[in-house]
């Protein structure tokens, strides 16, 4: 069976659609890492809880979409702020490994909260994206993939613009590099911590709404975070642009390999890329390479 050109295009576009969601979640991870040097293993679960909060507003309380989305993002910001205030800030002066371990614990806490409130049952989000498939000539793109891509792309465009032109972006980096030096030049270090966790939680919740609207939600959907870790390691832990490019690329690669080689090769391909990047550029494709004077 010859591979048809149109099949390649459709698979590619579907892959890029999924990739854009990985990229968006990757950006949420990068925001926290960039400002606080915390490796947040719970990013997938922050995405999940965002999706469930949205489910609560849109299905549980039957609120319209235009109200559910902003409410979800606001609740996500509060959750992000709470996590930072209660679990991360008390460990500010501790070893980074402790903070990393705390984020592992956080995954279980968030899963537990969701299962207590909504049970472990998988659910579907109310349909809110237009259901008409998008056609480019003969190329068919499922509507949810297309619209979630557009929304994710818009969100990332805003974030990238903010971080390239806003002076605070460099304050985030400064805080991550040296907290004492940062407060000595007047940077509000606890403020930066709160801000980055709240913003990351909002971005993750938006990604959660989109991921959930494409594939449904369940308490296990945080596993999506695993692919996101590959994305951020490949792209560079502290690079928003890196998360974007690596996200799109890995989404595309997984779709192509899954379509033309079989689903069992997906992870093989992803982790091969991860391995190669770690050997060749351990700080990621776009990550900051720390120069050390010995």
């Amino acid at each position: 069976m010859a591979v048809e050109f149109i099949d390649i295009v459709e698979t590619s576009l579907a892959g890029i659609g999924t990739g854009s969601l990985m990229a968006l979640t990757g950006v949420a991870f990068v925001i926290i890492y960039k400002a606080t040097k915390v490796i947040n293993l719970a990013i997938g679960e922050m995405l999940m809880i965002g999706a469930f909060v949205f489910y609560g507003f849109s299905a549980g309380l039957s609120l319209p979409i235009w109200a559910s989305v902003p409410l979800t993002l606001a609740v996500a910001a509060v959750i992000g702020g709470l996590i930072e205030r209660t679990m991360i800030r008390p460990l500010l002066k501790d070893n980074p490994v402790s903070v990393f371990m705390v984020t592992i614990g956080l995954t279980s806490v968030l899963i537990g909260v969701v299962e207590l409130v909504w049970s472990a049952e998988p659910r579907r989000l109310p349909e809110f994206l237009p259901s008409q498939p998008v056609l480019f000539g003969e190329v068919f793109i499922p509507s949810k993939t297309a619209y979630s891509f557009v929304i994710a792309a818009a969100a990332m465009a805003v974030l990238i613009t903010v971080f390239s032109f806003w002076r605070g972006g460099i304050a985030l980096r400064a805080t991550a590099t040296d907290r004492a030096a940062a407060s000595s030049v007047g940077i509000d270090v606890p403020g930066v911590f709160s801000f980055s966790w709240m913003l990351a939680a909002v971005v993750a919740a938006l990604a959660g709404i989109l991921v959930g609207s494409v594939g449904g939600i369940s308490s296990a959907m945080g596993l999506f975070g695993l692919s996101v870790f590959v994305v951020v390691i490949v792209g560079g832990l502290d690079s928003i642009l890196g998360a974007l490019i690596a996200g799109l690329f890995i989404g595309w690669l997984e779709a192509m390999v899954g379509r033309f080689m079989g689903g069992e090769f997906k992870l093989l391909a992803t982790f091969t890329i991860l391995l190669v990047v770690l050997v060749v550029r351990p700080y990621g494709l776009f990550g900051t390479h720390e120069i050390e004077r010995l």
């Binding site: 400064a174 590099t177 040296d178 030096a181 000595s184 720390e290």
Partner: peptide
């Protein structure tokens, strides 16, 4: 304004 005994610069910048 202050400086630090063990230089506290923003490395990488």
């Amino acid at each position: 304004a202050r400086t630090f005994q063990n230089i506290a610069l923003f490395r990488g910048m």
